[in-house]
Amino acid sequence: MTKRGINTSRALVAACVLALVALALIVWAVLVPRPVPVMLAMTAGQLLGTLSLASFLVVVVYDMRRGRGHIIPNDPPPPLPPEPVERDPKVS
């Protein structure tokens, strides 16, 4: 794994854990429809579920690009071009 790579299996575990928390909030709200559970499900539940799906999709896209050779994890990153240094003539 290089700096440019994503640890896909860790990202997927994170996505799964997020999904389980979000699902638990949704189930709690559905079974106990009182203000706090319902509000939590609609806010935190949505957010965590969205994050979970987003991380899964990122992993899949990353995996597909890697498969097609766009990203080769073992390649060292290309050297960065030297930063152009701006010199202000008034300040020495």
């Binding site: 949704i26 609609m42 539940g45 579920g49 799906l53």
Partner: peptide, 13 residues
């Protein structure tokens, strides 16, 4: 992670 949780969230909401 996608289809079923979205279904749960939508009906739950």
């Amino acid at each position: 992670l996608g289809v079923l949780p979205i279904g749960a969230a939508m009906t739950g909401n």
